[in-house]
Design a protein around this nucleic acid. Structure first.
Lengths: 187, 187, 187, 187
DNA sequence: AATGAATGAGCATTCATTCAT
DNA sequence: GATGAATGAATGCTCATTCAT
């Protein structure tokens, strides 16, 4: 049922989705949905939380304490990629802007958890000199934005192979990583 | 009226926006909107086209033929920044995903025009060796995505000063630019 | 303008007709109609009265006092025919049932005038023995109904030539005329 | 619900009838109507077909093969009378002109079926010499028109008793029947 | 627990009418 | 006098939600 709701919400927007449509897709009756979720809003939030949690699991998977920042970035990038590949609809749904209107506190908290994870990485990288200086929030925004842009392009039809994806990862790391000292000084 | 429509569409989604709401915001009656636009869909498209065109103007502004690629990137970045600063709501509206359902051919064409502009820059940069190899569509997706991510953060409350913005520009250029040869070879 | 109103009211029903449509057809602006008629209802009534009056003129035309009943019937039949031929749209409009909702007192009075004229003929014919006995209202209803049915068929596409029309007139007169005494009694 | 729809459509015209009005009359909510009929147009057609079919049943009732034409006419007349008496609103509804705009193919076919039935009778009567010569369509139009005119009068308040009705039937048969030969020749 | 018919507020859109130009 | 843009109530229709089965 969460599956069905995810599909139609992603296809039609929250406001553009009629409950009967969700029911049809789920192969259940409207009334049945209301037995499990008190309202449409509760349903989207359940959907959001379900997949955001799964995404967080992907991100946490294989994490090692004291992992080098560069490697951690690579692992996170791969995790995002895996999630977006395994659950493309879910990823599309999660990244849609304008969830603001109907997301509840728990959903918002979950979303922030993902951001916190990324911010933490950036901060550690900055401390260790591997990641360039500047507001971590800005860097996270740029990097996550880049990833979202890429996924959007993929969903829109751009074919991105294994190599291409790895190249993209390196490109984004170049966005993040501290510039070489010599380069900065010499004209 | 385009102003009012922009505001409410951005706040509430296309489907989430009721025409009376547009009317209220415009300080006009519902019927009046229908004198100017035959339907809600025509209205969003008018809004989309109006601001997309303005954005294209910003991007074209100050362009010089034979401008070096690095400089051109900087100018485009500044143009985007200027547009997003001057018309934050419009920028938010334009970058919303899921426009697909209701945009007409002309709107889509306009959107592609902007992408073409960016792709063109990337291709030229690749030919000249300033921009890294790879599918230009992927690079454009990453870069535009990064910019969108940044604007989203700004709209969400992150304060980004002049310096910070310039730093972000350099970071994104690092995403784009061809890596230094020596760095790749030496351990 | 009455012409235009007649046309659209006949094509679309009173309720189904929008004032802008009347305006378009009349080649005038909507406001202009309201300069001449205070409301849509006033307009239909003007239309109704205009053509009902004309129809009454047709019926009165060529009337002779002390004309034999049979001849008078023929003349009235021809008058109806002439009116329905000269102003087919007007005839169609006038004969539409369900005028009740919006016709005012004067329109109703005019309609009754036509009925009175026919009833008077029937009563005189009954007194003179040329027209069969029975409630004159019933006979008038049958005869006028027959004429309306015929016009409807014509408007629907049935082609009715001069001879056919004369034959129809004789048939309807047979409906009206007193049956021959001998026929009733002798087998 | 068909009952309620019939009532309001007959009182107010198709275009003049608002769906909430139908709902009120049916003692149901607007949405409920739309569970049973996909649109207002579908509703009128359902109403039309329901009663037109019933009327056809009335007409078919008691038909005998090889029934003499005169008797068949009487039976049909009685059937019409019975239908118009049992279902006066339905009869009024069915006979309103200008159904053209919204009736669908099936409704139209049903209407033609009734006409065909009458035309068939006339043709047989003409072959047997009982019914006067001439375009059967014209005769059917006159006769059905006469019946409609009568019903209209009745609905408008004219009281028509059993005898009166039988007399009307004879009068209309006189419209239809072939004139006596002798009458035509002798002065 | 599941169903889906019923509800009525709400939506996009139209239309009679007004009124500044 | 004529115009047609503006108005907002009303229309056909949809949809989140309820509830008897």
């Amino acid at each position: 049922m969460l599956e069905a709701a995810l599909a139609v919400f992603t296809e039609h927007t929250y406001d553009g989705t009629a409950m009967p449509l969700v029911a049809d897709r789920a192969g259940a009756a409207v009334g049945t949905i209301y037995r499990h979720f008190p309202s449409k809003q509760a349903l989207v939030n359940a959907v959001f939380q379900h997949w955001k949690r799964l995404m967080l699991e992907y991100l946490a998977r294989g994490a090692r304490p004291d992992e080098p920042v560069r490697a951690e970035f690579g692992r996170i990038w791969s995790a995002l990629r895996a999630f977006a590949t395994d659950h493309p609809t879910a990823f599309a749904f999660l990244e849609h802007q304008q969830h603001e209107g109907y997301l509840d506190a728990e959903s918002t908290a979950l979303a922030e958890q993902a951001t916190a994870l990324a911010t933490d990485l950036v901060v550690r990288g900055q401390r260790g000199g591997q990641i360039r200086a500047g507001d971590p929030a800005v860097l996270v925004a740029l990097v996550y934005g880049a990833f979202v842009g890429l996924s959007k392009a993929i969903r829109a039809g751009t074919v991105v192979g294994e190599d291409e994806f790895a190249a993209a990862e390196r490109a984004v790391w170049d966005l993040l990583r501290a510039p070489d000292r010599p380069r900065q000084r010499t004209p």
